[in-house]
Write a protein that binds this DNA or RNA. Structure first.
Lengths: 200, 200
DNA sequence: CATTTTATGTATCGATTGATAAAATAAAGC
DNA sequence: GCTTTATTTTATCAATCGATACATAAAATG
């Protein structure tokens, strides 16, 4: 039943959380194994035995990020009573999340590997896919609003989704530049000021 | 009159342009001196003699970028007949610029060193300052519109400038994710759909 | 001419990169 | 206690990082 050999002496999830923080702060390429082992409190062989490689560690860190930090932002999309409320929730939750800590940080998925020629094309493509998945989630919510009569049949759901996703991505940059919670909430309000025109 | 010693055998501006392309594609940290010397066609001592350091080379590359690629975007702000036209020009020129090449690239100033803990804090701060300068340019144009009567006295110029700057930053991410010209122009249109509400 | 000055090409510097080999150690099954 | 299995520690691997020492080549100066 129980493992045969010596059990590991560290909390795998706690170590992963530390790795996530390092990647969040430095990005995939700039985070060195020395940075990671120091923050996680491990020696390199323990890290490689538990996570396989730097790529594997990053993938798990991003998954953890999506399940924790990202959940509060995206979980409310489907459940929102209207598409308008869904978009407003997306941007307001983003503004709150990006300014919740002592220093604004932006999104790991947006900023973790932004270069087209990154050290790991697989990592770059994985983050890109996650970003595009976000756009698609918005688009599907808008299409549902068409079937429900909230939006007219001729509404350009793809364009509306692209607009709100773009604003959300831009908030990551603004957060890293030190934008306050009030500033980001004002950005969210500005984007929602376009709703009536976009929805008709 | 003429230089004393042996003249350099390469075109400094052409070499700088090549360096700009490498930095644009890879970012500051991921662009290695080997990448740069290969693209510029120089040996390392020639590069260091001409540009001082990797930091110095990047600074000059960013200045060249701002004077060439960025000019078409920002030069029209002051000259636009109205603040509304200025914002529309900003976003439309950005959409065109980010999709002018074979592959969409986004902005070097937004994407060149996005990590809070970058290899060079000076580079990071320089790009951040340039981004904030952009926000300020928009705000000043909006404030001018207040004095000229285009906008009411109670208009929140800072909030409006932040909104349009955020959209423009987000377009860099969307461009790197492969957004088409039509998509980015639709984003610009979406942002302008908010104007009437923001301006009253 | 010789001297001075600057640029170039070759080879390489110490430091750091991601990733391991080898040996020591600890816990579970028999 | 003994074997088995896995983890931990120590030390280090080849490759690459940004940056240079050195000797040579080419122009202006005297």
């Amino acid at each position: 039943m129980a493992q045969r050999g010596r059990p590991r002496s560290f909390d795998r999830t706690a170590a992963l959380r530390q790795a996530m923080e390092v990647f969040w702060q430095k990005g995939y390429d700039n985070a060195s194994m020395a940075d990671l082992t120091a923050a996680m409190g491990l020696n390199p062989p323990s890290l490689y035995a538990a996570f396989g490689s730097k790529e594997g560690l990053f993938r798990e860190a991003v998954t953890l990020y999506a399940e924790t930090e990202g959940q509060g932002i995206w979980e409310g999309i489907a459940g929102a009573p209207t598409a308008r409320a869904a978009m407003a929730h997306l941007l307001e939750a983003t503004a709150l999340a990006y300014t919740s800590g002592a220093e604004p940080r932006g999104c790991l998925i947006v900023l973790g590997a932004p270069q087209p020629e990154c050290a790991s094309p697989a990592i770059r493509d994985d983050l890109k896919k996650r970003r595009l998945d976000g756009v698609r989630i918005l688009e599907e919510r808008l299409e549902r609003a068409v079937t429900e009569g909230e939006l007219p049949n001729h509404a350009d759901c793809a364009a509306i989704a692209n607009f709100y996703a773009t604003v959300q991505h831009g908030m990551s940059i603004r957060a890293r530049d030190g934008a306050s919670r009030e500033t980001l909430l004002a950005v969210a309000g500005g984007a929602m000021a376009a709703w009536d025109r976009l929805a008709t």
